[in-house]
Nucleic acid binder design. Sequence first.
DNA 1: GTCTATAACGCGATAGAC
DNA 2: GTCTATCGCGTTATAGAC
Lengths: 195, 195
Amino acid sequence: MARKTGSHSEITGPLVREAAERLFARHGYAAVSMRQIAGEVGVQAGALYNYTPDKQSLLYDMMSTHMQSLLQSWSDADPGGTPMDRLQAFTRHHIHFHLQRPDAVFIAYMELRNLEAQNFARIEVQRKAYEMVLENILQDGQGAGAFHVGDVKLAGMAVIAMLTGVTTWFRDDGRLSVEEIANHYWDMVRKAVGA
Amino acid sequence: MARKTGSHSEITGPLVREAAERLFARHGYAAVSMRQIAGEVGVQAGALYNYTPDKQSLLYDMMSTHMQSLLQSWSDADPGGTPMDRLQAFTRHHIHFHLQRPDAVFIAYMELRNLEAQNFARIEVQRKAYEMVLENILQDGQGAGAFHVGDVKLAGMAVIAMLTGVTTWFRDDGRLSVEEIANHYWDMVRKAVGA
DNA sequence: GTCTATAACGCGATAGAC
DNA sequence: GTCTATCGCGTTATAGAC
């Protein structure tokens, strides 16, 4: 994988981001050095600074891109219709999206405290927007009598935590397929919100 | 808080562990230096090594103690009786226990990857034991016809993730009391397992 | 039990050659 | 665009004085 002196590359930028994502997810932002990232890509540490102004930007950019991608993906997947239909779609989309990018998800949840204040604030806005997607669905359903939850905000947090938890134990070669898992979770979400 | 040269202390050991726990929870294990911990306690960095062989032991000891404490606390709180009674007790105990020690909980979930291999394996045994507590309750209830879940293992993971998620948003001065939160969560857990 | 001093090393980031 | 070399600083852990 090591690259020779003088070789050129239009794709080093993406490789840097991929290596950083993999290493941050595995060892944590603070525990990973620029030299390690460079080693994965096959360049020297100094070369990384052609692609990122600093280490912090590497973290912020991948988190922001991830959240943007999550919001856009849901926006595309939202079927509209009844709160029940939308809640099912949200559940299935959340599980599928999250299981497809375990590293990005892990970082998005674990590295918030390593963001500088301003970057943290920006990511929090995106996170809040996603939480509001679910909260609005639950609120609509509650108003229409389709759901029966004691507290909409709390139910929203509970559902997201439950769904995101899948990423901590899922293995590709595990006992259940993603589809089976999504079905089981939808069954539990449906019951939990009193639908 | 700074301590004067030559002062003695039988309580420096606990202070070191408390400071380390607070700092690890706030900034992450890898981002915290021994100098920072020493500064919080009011000693020089070298003095810490009277209380811990190294930084890694500081992390492992607090995580192991936390898990031991969790298992013991549940053991004391387990009312026995029907699966329904035990599931309610488990739900309430999990929420109360976790909200009472946010720093230790945060570390237990976030710093697993900073444990050396052998230490990680030991903590995993303790985590697994706790998961089995819930799984056994669900299994008993499923067998007795009190619960109706599609998959006992998966339901266990879902319930734990949902309950633990409280720690990410709970604030002491928030809208709901711990008691109200526990009630709402028990309502959702009860429904989710089809009781 | 805590101090100061230091060994041995790694860090992020930059400069300038090619 | 990548290299080598380096700056300035921080890291864990230890040694020996008090």
